[in-house]
Each structure stands twice: as C-alpha cells, then as structure tokens.
C-alpha cells in the first residue's frame, strides 16, 4: 500500500528528466500518477479532477509561466472540494531541472531522523520579536524541534549561506522580501547561491512579500533556490503580504511543526487558514512532499555554525 499519492504533471519532453525523482518517491512508498501533457500547462480545474485521490500535486511546466499566473495558491481543490498542496517547478533549462531533481532525490533518500528548524529574520525589532515567539512555541509541547537561531543579528550573509548547507529539515524567514530576494542579511539574492555546495535544506518558508513574484526579474528568488539545489521547496508569496497575516502564519506553522508535520505538504495543510485572503499570496515552489526531517549529521554540522551571541 502506498503511504501517499502524488500527481505529477510534466511536459512530455521532460518525462525522462523526472524519472530519478519518481524512483525516489517509490522508495518512500509514494505512488506517482504521471500526467504527460503537450501544449500549455494544465489549468487548475483539470489538475483538481485528475488529482481526485491524490495527496499532493507536482506541476512542471515551461519557464515563461510565472507562479502567480500558473497557480492561484499553495493548495488545489480536488473535484470533491478537498484541498491538497501543489508545487510548481518552472523548466528554465535542462541543467537546472536536473539540479532540482537531484536535490529532491537527495532529500528523499537521506535519513529522516531529526526534526529541525532554522529561524531566519531580518535585523529589525519587529521580526526579531516574532522569531522569539516562534522559538518559544517550538520549544514547548511534547514534540520539541531542534531549533537554530540564525537571524541577521547573529550571522552575516556569507555565514548564513554556509549554515544553510548544513542539511537541516527546514527554515523559516521573517522580514521584508522582494522578487529578487530578502532585505535581511544586507540583501540576500539568488546569485549569492551560485555554485552552492553542501547538503541541501528541506523546505524554506519565506513569510514575507513577493519572493515568488516575477516582477522585474526573470526568475523569482523562491523559484531559483530549488533550481540551484539549495532546498527542495520554497513556500513564498507572489504579492505583498501583511505582517499581521504573516504573524498568524508563523503561529500556525509553529503549531503544525509541534503536531508532527513530516513534509511541507503536511505543514501547509495543518497551518492553512480558513480565509482565502491569507492563503492567496502564497505558492509552493518545488517538491510539495519535501521532507522536513534531516539526518543526524546535518544537525551536527548546524551545531558547528558559529553565531554572534
């Protein structure tokens, strides 16, 4: 019996590129339903109908399409009205698609023993206080997470990039964001991850404005990171967001971690608000079933990261 079912809609010409990921899913008892399509990216109603008995959707499509127009949110309604997470992967070129696939495979194949979260934030009292609160929530309850505080007052940009290569399960950023990156860490851009080596991060949650927007950029920051092999997936916004809404997301996500979310899909579903207003800005870029747990050696590397206390 499969533990989960994933619908993967992929252009016919790229089916073979995804084969290693399908094998990695199968090893994790994820049954993949492939939809090899020709022409333009399938619309959401058709995807919802095809994913009637699935737990998540991975949509791969031509790179010209922006996350804000190809999907209406991080979840998709199936024909029965059930909501399931959907991830978008733009095909910019074969090399970056192969990098995404090999990163996702690596994440699925590595041991999933340690739930771990890195807390990232812009150096600003409002965001540092929110980080304090996330840390306090994650430190409570019976299922404690291993939490690393890598906020902008404790690490400089270069150190953060090295820290993110420790191989943790996930990270949450709070601060200001732009289509090209984050304001925190004196401006973090996708190009700072060029030549990224090390162990990839699982999922990166960016609770800020516009990191998945294509406005005045060819590829958004949130799309670029999975394609550069930095992480398996990013949860990011295609438009402006409100700090009050992001605070609410942060609380719900922290609770979802405590309730034992094992994948990004689990996390997003558990933290999903009732209101469309808070959901609509966000998208999943990359693998929606990206695991949030990491091997013990990732934790050891993360513990060795030096921070300014």
């Amino acid at each position: 019996m499969p533990s989960r079912r994933l619908l993967c809609a992929v252009p016919r010409g790229h089916a073979a590129d995804l084969a290693p990921l399908f094998a990695a899913y199968a090893a994790r008892r994820v049954e993949v339903r492939s939809w090899l399509y020709g022409g333009d990216v399938p619309e959401e109603p058709a995807l919802g109908a095809a994913a009637a008995d699935c737990d998540a959707v991975l949509l791969v499509g031509r790179g010209e399409r922006a996350p804000g127009t190809v999907l209406s949110g991080p979840v998709l309604a199936t024909a029965s009205g059930r909501r399931i997470p959907i991830g978008w992967v733009p095909v910019v070129d074969r090399a970056s698609l192969a990098r995404f696939v090999s990163t996702a495979v690596r994440l699925h194949e590595r041991a999933h023993s340690v739930p771990s979260v890195a807390l990232l934030a812009q150096r600003h009292p409002r965001f540092l206080r929110l980080t304090d609160r996330i840390e306090a929530i994650l430190d409570g309850g019976e299922r404690r997470r291993t939490v690393f505080r890598w906020t902008s007052d404790a690490l400089v940009r270069e150190d953060l990039i090295r820290a993110l290569a420790s191989g943790l399960g996930s990270a949450i950023y709070v601060g200001h964001g732009r289509p090209t990156g984050w304001t925190g860490y004196y401006g973090l851009r996708a190009r700072h991850f060029d030549g990224f080596t090390g162990e990839p991060l699982g999922a990166l949650i960016a609770l800020c404005c516009r990191t998945a927007s294509r406005r005045r950029t060819r590829l958004s920051f949130a799309e670029a990171l999975p394609l550069k092999g930095v992480c398996g997936a990013v949860f990011g916004a295609v438009s402006a967001t409100l700090h009050t809404d992001n605070t609410r997301w942060a609380v719900r996500l922290s609770d979802a971690y405590l309730h034992g979310a094992r994948t990004l899909a689990d996390l997003v579903l558990a933290a999903l608000p009732a209101t469309a207003r808070q959901v609509a800005p966000y998208r999943i870029l990359g693998d929606p079933l990206c695991p949030l747990r990491a091997p013990a050696r990732g934790l050891r590397r993360a513990r060795a990261v030096e921070v300014y206390a």
Binding site: R129, T247, R248, V251, D255, A274, T275, R277, Q278
Partner: peptide
C-alpha cells in the same frame, strides 16, 4: 501587539473563521 496577533491566529484556527 504580537500576543494579540497570535491570539487572533489561534481563534481563527479554532473556529475556522477570518
């Protein structure tokens, strides 16, 4: 204000409203 935003999140989640 942070406590109140958190309280709002918890109320919204509990009662499934906005």
């Amino acid at each position: 204000s942070l406590d109140l935003a958190e309280l709002a999140a918890r109320i919204e989640q509990h009662y499934r409203l906005d």
